[in-house]
Write a protein that binds this DNA or RNA. Structure first.
Lengths: 361, 361
DNA sequence: TTGAAAGCGCTAACAC
DNA sequence: GTGTTAGCGCTTTCAA
């Protein structure tokens, strides 16, 4: 960051104000912080002086230095915002976070990737004045950032993904939820089930059939947990296609791949690991002339609005997206208050809707 | 924000490191800042000591105080993130901003509204350690925040919306672009044209026919400029419906209202002031049994992807959404370098596609 | 190439 | 109620 302060002429400081008001700085400080008794007359004199000098209150940086708190909480967002915020789940997380943090007096600083790099710029991670940081799906490309932050002693709160030692986590039961979802499909008679997975690691530059070796190098537990849920419910391995992100276009590509075979080869159901992927799969299926759910059942995950599907409503696992952010926000507040919060596991709900039906034949 | 620092035992400071290395603090400082000559031997001793003590580099807050720079740029986002980030235009702005600011060493702090209030919490606006702030569509509910920031002496960069004295702006030619768009409709034979406008002021709690009194109290110039463009191209006033936000659902409501009349009363073209509103209008039209563009032409504004429309492609005004953010980011950098950047007006492009056609009859 | 000293602007003890 | 004093942790002259 650039060097010296520029802009408008030197701002007045508290001591100038105190001087102008004829009181001690400490007294003036009390006027602004409100944390101590000040006579009305004095208060007025100080405020008048502040007004006269155009003093807008204590310098936040000086105050932070003194108090050992910056009032800033970071959020690590691996991708470029343009992509990250296409995902309603990421947006909801942020929303929940601010809902909880803003009233507590904390601001949210984005530590995001950019076109040149996945993961936040190291320089920022090293230099941002953070009281704490929230990391979603940590692992993979976020790892360097996370370890820098850990080294710096910045308290870390995790949301889903890899568990880190000493990091309080907010998560959902990805495995259990997918087991339940898969049982629903099995009850409908589906046996040939394929999965479209989230990226197994960041950066999501890879797409294709998910083989064992690729699977072994996964750093994202979310995708793995959801995949295992399907397999455990079925009792055997399934064909899976790994997407390079969790968005519609990737689901579309995956759908075209998975549904290419003849009616007796291709899956009768596709389990997509996000609703957006599922939307893409539905689009692909329709292009291939398949009716949903008569010819193909499709399931999603998340429970977002899907206005892209016309009347079709996705069968999906609804997760409390905003609440995840809120819970993480509360953890931040607790940690900064000196507590060691317990991990939180939020509940999910299976929503059976019109995108699933009895297996064909 | 809470008081004292908590968490892991007191972090080592630069002076501890210097002491352990047997050098002066100032020398140790040079090792980390790299801004001065240090012998290799000394450097090594200092880094070793830092390693041994688990010192992760200079405290950002102390550094900021000394240097008079926090490395943080605020973005005022009037609404709750959950709504604001549904708008691809807002997301693209943020994306462009970070693209430009992250490499320059600045982080982005969100100053957003929340469920309880529109506009950022005053406490945050007063206490955040900002080097500068970017405000989109300032005016209305952001006004208090903006004036606080101004008072604090925080340099402000504006993106669209109300012009403020002394605030460098990034904008587009909303009026001119809409004139061109409307001419296209006129050439197609359209005479009965209705407009769906963006909210005329924040908070967007109002929806309904836009009458003169309401129009007179507008604080958002974007909606007004685009509306005037239509009127100036037509040479007369038009019926307009004010939406309470710029999203799909509002466009849908507006569409149902505007298209309720008989074929000879209802408009033959609807000019929506955002692509999302246009998508909603299209949905409404289809529900009412109207074919597009045979029975009704619909135009948007922005140039976002619209995967909600099937094969229909929106005729729209494409604006450089990300570039707006980049330009604003560059302005921030310039202002902090002591420059007084000139206002920037970015170009737009009319995209004629399949949602407009000859007027019926 | 290194060290000593000043001080960024503020708050929190403590004394009066 | 108000003033005095001592730093928060760092960078930056300036001198050696």
């Amino acid at each position: 960051m650039p060097r010296s302060r520029t802009g408008t002429a030197a701002r007045p400081t508290l001591s100038k104000v105190a001087e102008a008001a004829g009181v001690a700085v400490s007294t003036a400080s009390l006027v602004f912080s409100g944390s101590g008794p000040v006579s009305d007359a004095t208060r007025r004199r100080v405020l008048d002086a502040a007004d006269r000098l155009g003093y807008a209150g204590p310098d936040p940086v000086a105050r932070s230095l003194r108090q050992g708190r910056s009032g800033i909480v970071g959020v690590v967002i691996g991708e470029r915002l343009l992509y990250a915020f296409r995902d309603p789940v990421a947006v909801a997380l942020l929303d929940g976070l601010t809902e909880e943090l803003a009233p507590a007096g904390f601001g949210l600083l984005l530590l995001s990737g950019s076109s040149g790099r996945t993961g936040p710029a190291p320089e920022q991670v090293e230099r941002a004045p953070l009281d704490a940081v929230v990391v979603e799906s940590c692992g993979g490309d976020d790892a360097p950032a996370v370890s820098t932050l850990h080294h710096r002693g910045v308290p870390i709160i995790g949301v889903e993904g890899t568990r880190l030692p000493d990091v309080p986590m907010v998560s959902i039961d990805n495995h259990g939820a997918t087991v339940e979802l898969t049982r629903h499909l099995v009850e409908l008679g589906h046996r040939r089930i394929s999965v479209v997975t989230l990226p197994m690691r960041q950066p999501g530059t890879h797409r294709g059939p998910l083989d064992d070796s690729r699977r072994a190098t996964a750093t994202s537990t979310t995708g793995i947990d959801r995949l295992r849920g399907v397999e455990d419910a079925l009792g055997h391995a399934v064909a899976a296609w790994e997407a390079s992100d969790g968005l519609i276009e990737e689901g579309h590509r995956a759908g075209l791949e998975l549904l290419a075979g003849s009616p007796h080869q291709r899956p009768t159901a596709v389990v997509a690991q996000s609703d957006l992927l599922a939307v893409g799969v539905v689009h692909a299926a329709r292009e291939l002339g398949l009716r949903i759910p008569q010819d193909l059942s499709v399931t999603g995950f998340d429970g977002i609005d899907t206005p892209w599907l016309g009347d079709l409503r996705l069968t999906t696992v609804e997760q409390p997206m905003t609440e995840k952010g809120r819970a993480a926000g509360r953890m931040v507040v607790d940690v900064l208050a000196g507590a060691r919060p317990d991990p939180v596991m939020l509940p999910t709900t299976l929503r059976v809707r019109s995108s699933t039906g009895p297996a064909p034949e």
